[in-house]
């Protein structure tokens, strides 16, 4: 289910990359990369050295680019990178702090540098710091922050000037489960409720699965796929994954007797039923042998299965 690049309708909120090639001195890093993105949560996936960071640098206009290869918000990044950057937010993975400043000073300063008047910047700084969930810590010097607070202040500085697109490099890096859930919640809110475009470069497929509606997959500098994240439905068969407790064997036998195929995959029982008969068959089997189900859902191809297929296949 590829997303077709539409050359015609690249509105000024879009990012469009046309046959981008880029090489450092000798080694090619990006080869013939073409895609168009409209504001959404986009996962940028790929193994180490696949060119993810280079692509983000190209989108920020930090590379010497050929004209008309990269267009962001209607600006050709080879010529008008500066103008476009006032509407872009960037959260780097490594570092990304200005030591010696308090959280709120750093965010308002970077807001001013993005072209905001000083008073607007200070007011917005407090607002986005509230949003990312930092309280009184905002008045402490940023170099004393814990990892969780660092990631939050880094997100705040990327948001202060109300960008149209956010580029996040490993936003959950170093966060514990609580911090990670909070960060993903913020990103999801921004992309789905607030209309921002977000590109998340990540090694964690679970993160991409949790927040992204589209993915870009890179390998060795080539774009392998640009797809929507959605459950894949099959034609003739419906596939369900079931998790429950009770007499597993009897349940499986009942299902087979009703014409279904049953397999085991980790914690799930995977049942393929002829299309149209749907869930009723499974419920009947469960009722007949007292098998209780916590979960009975159509099986989507998980992002991780799909990604590994693409990258290794």
């Amino acid at each position: 289910m590829g997303v077709q690049p539409d050359d015609v309708n690249t509105g000024c909120s879009a990012i469009s990359v046309q046959s981008l090639n880029f090489a450092y001195v000798s080694a090619p890093v990006l080869t013939d990369v073409t895609f168009t993105l409209h504001p959404a949560a986009v996962g940028l996936l790929g193994p180490n050295g696949s060119g993810k960071t280079t692509l983000l640098r190209a989108l920020l206009g930090h590379l010497p680019l050929p004209p008309a290869a990269v267009s962001v918000l209607g600006h050709d990044m080879a010529l008008a990178g500066r103008v476009a950057r006032s509407r872009l937010g960037w959260m780097p993975e490594r570092g990304g702090l200005l030591p010696g400043m308090s959280g709120v000073a750093m965010v308002s300063y970077l807001g001013e540098l993005a072209g905001m008047p000083a008073r607007d910047a200070l007011q917005r700084a407090h607002e986005v710091i509230d949003y990312v969930g930092l309280a009184e810590e905002r008045y402490r010097p940023v170099q004393d922050y814990s990892q969780g607070m660092r990631q939050r202040i880094k997100l705040a500085q990327a948001l202060v000037h109300d960008p149209a697109w956010l580029f996040l490099d490993e936003p959950t890096s170093g966060l514990d489960p609580k911090g990670r859930a909070a960060m993903l919640g913020l990103v999801r809110d921004l992309a789905t409720q607030k209309g921002l475009g977000v590109i998340i470069s990540t090694h964690l497929l679970a993160d991409a699965q949790a927040v992204c509606s589209e993915i870009l997959v890179l390998r060795e500098g080539r774009l392998l796929a640009h797809e929507r994240v959605a459950p894949a439905r099959e034609g003739a068969q419906e596939r369900f994954e079931i998790e429950g407790f009770g007499d597993e064997t009897a349940f499986a036998e009942r299902l087979r007797a009703a014409g279904a195929t049953v397999a085991r995959d980790g914690r799930f029982t995977v049942v393929s039923v002829p299309a149209g008969r749907g869930a009723a068959v499974i419920l009947e089997a469960g009722a007949a042998c007292g098998y209780a189900m916590r979960r009975m859902r159509r099986r989507a191809v998980t992002l991780s299965e799909h990604f590994l297929e693409l990258v290794e296949g």
């Binding site: 960037w90 490594r94 570092g95 990304g96 200005l98 030591p99 540098l113």
Partner: peptide, 22 residues
């Protein structure tokens, strides 16, 4: 002394140059 060294300490240039800044 700290003017640039401090920005370099925590990769602060990434933040500066993500802005419309030359």
């Amino acid at each position: 002394s700290p003017l640039i060294a401090r920005d370099r300490a925590e990769n602060g240039h990434a933040l500066y140059f993500a802005r419309p800044l030359t």
